[in-house]
């Protein structure tokens, strides 16, 4: 883990009409680590993710990715820089089979005009597809139409697609939501391995405290669109403001 932040937010604000979803949020996601983002429902976590990946313009502040200002960039440009997100409501290409879902998830940052008309996948790419589908435990189901998979499997596929894209940073929006508790441990293990073996920096929104407290080295807590607390899992767990926010005293 290095000390230079890969993502650095300074005073980011975003309002929708009169609703202030994020107010002057500043945070740093260190490269190579796992950083958590928690907060009660409606506290602005997903809005913050959307702002980072360029889904909507921000009202104020600055968002830097490896020192580069990206708050004016659009979604595909940011994705091609290597900053990728998954969705809270799992999103896959539901009429295509798992292999095709994976094949089109290759990194697009260096694709030129002629690459658009190449074969769907060369040997090396196919091997990587097999390897990653095996990594998430979907190899047996690789030829199935992805929309027919169970919700948990779709979530795993989405994760495999994200890995296929070889991102530097992965923003995961509730990776364990809706997943069968027995599968959660396997997923945590895979997220950790992606972080440790592939060196992908993770920035994770998570409601499951057991999961996030175990995984993250550093956690930010939002409440009512503002940054409430920041610290190690231990510090956050014992922070009275965080406890109040979750119990509704805030």
């Amino acid at each position: 883990m290095t000390d230079t932040p890969v993502i650095e937010l300074n005073g980011v604000s975003k309002s929708f009409g009169g609703v202030v979803a994020n107010h002057s949020i500043s945070l740093k996601v260190p490269g190579g680590g796992i950083t958590g983002l928690i907060g009660p429902n409606g506290s602005g976590k997903t809005t913050l993710f959307n702002s980072i990946v360029g889904y909507h313009p921000i009202d104020e502040g600055s968002i830097r990715f490896k020192g580069q200002e990206i708050s004016d960039y659009r979604v595909p440009q940011i994705a091609r820089l290597g900053l990728l997100r998954t969705f809270q409501q799992t999103r896959i290409y539901s009429n295509m089979n798992c292999i095709d879902n994976m094949l089109i998830s290759i990194p697009h940052r260096k694709l030129g005009f002629r690459d658009m008309f190449k074969n769907r996948g060369d040997k090396a790419t196919m091997e990587e597809v097999d390897r990653l589908l095996d990594f998430v435990g979907l190899y047996e189901k690789r030829r199935l139409i992805s929309g027919d998979l169970s919700f948990g499997q779709q979530k795993l596929l989405e994760f495999a697609m994200a890995l296929m894209n070889r991102p530097e940073v992965l923003l995961l929006d509730e990776p364990t939501a809706g997943i069968n508790p027995t599968l959660i441990n396997g997923l945590i293990d895979r997220l950790r391995r992606a972080n440790e073996e592939l060196g992908i920096t993770l920035f994770v929104i998570e409601h499951n405290m057991r999961v996030i407290m175990n995984m993250a080295q550093s956690i930010y807590c939002l409440a009512h669109g503002e940054l409430l607390a920041h610290g190690t899992p231990d510090e956050i767990q014992n922070d009275q403001r965080v406890i109040d926010a979750y119990l509704g005293a805030h």
């Binding site: 990946v53 659009r74 979604v75 595909p76 994705a79 091609r80 990728l84 997100r85 969705f87 999103r91 896959i92 290409y93 539901s94 009429n95 295509m96 095709d100 094949l103 089109i104 998830s105 990194p107 697009h108 940052r109 694709l111 690459d115 658009m116 008309f117 190449k118 074969n119 769907r120 697609m161 894209n165």
Partner: peptide, 26 residues
């Protein structure tokens, strides 16, 4: 065309264009 990567890309746009954008597809 449908046998190439292009075919996959336009199918991806059909299934979920926001996802395709989020994955960096042009």
């Amino acid at each position: 065309l449908y046998s190439t990567r292009f075919g996959l890309a336009i199918n991806a746009i059909r299934d979920d264009e926001q996802k395709a954008e989020a994955m960096g597809i042009h």
